[in-house]
């Protein structure tokens, strides 16, 4: 699909996904949006799960069984990654958005993402080994 057709005015945001022009800042921008959507979806899933609690042990116990499988733990890893990326990048956006560290937005992003990777590694270790 050619995204530059004039009649596609309403879908102009699809141009965000023209990766040919992406640089680091744009990557952070896209990541922030993707993780945000992921976190919103998670929030609703979380509410659904909490609803199970109200049904007592008969509803809750089978869920706990599933939650202990490695496949489910993988989902937890994704959740943790999303939280770290969105949260830490959010700090960067807030800082630069008020005029602090504007000229070092790139190193700031890299540093925060390295920090995120370390925390994620520790988290994964605890989850699977702990």
């Amino acid at each position: 699909m050619n995204l530059y057709r004039p009649e596609l005015k309403r879908f102009r945001f699809l141009r965000w996904f023209d990766f040919r022009s992406w640089r680091l800042g744009m990557l952070a921008y896209i990541l922030n949006r993707v993780t945000a959507i992921g976190l919103v979806v998670y929030l609703y899933l979380h509410l659904a799960v909490l609803f199970l609690l109200a049904q007592g042990p008969s509803g809750w116990d089978p869920f706990i069984q599933i939650a202990r499988t490695p496949w489910f733990l993988m989902l937890d890893v994704i959740l943790l990654a999303g939280l770290l990326i969105h949260g830490l990048n959010g700090l960067r956006v807030a800082l630069t958005g008020f005029g602090y560290g504007v000229r070092s937005q790139k190193p700031l992003f890299i540093a925060l993402m390295i920090f995120a990777a370390i925390v994620l590694a520790v988290g994964v270790f605890k989850m699977f080994m702990g």
Binding site: S21, R23, G25, M26, A28, Y29, G97, R103, Q105
Partner: peptide, 19 residues
Amino acid sequence: CHSAWECTEACPQSVFPAE
């Protein structure tokens, strides 16, 4: 502005509009 910094990266004249 939602801080994608593309304006500044693309600027051929180093104007740094984001700043």
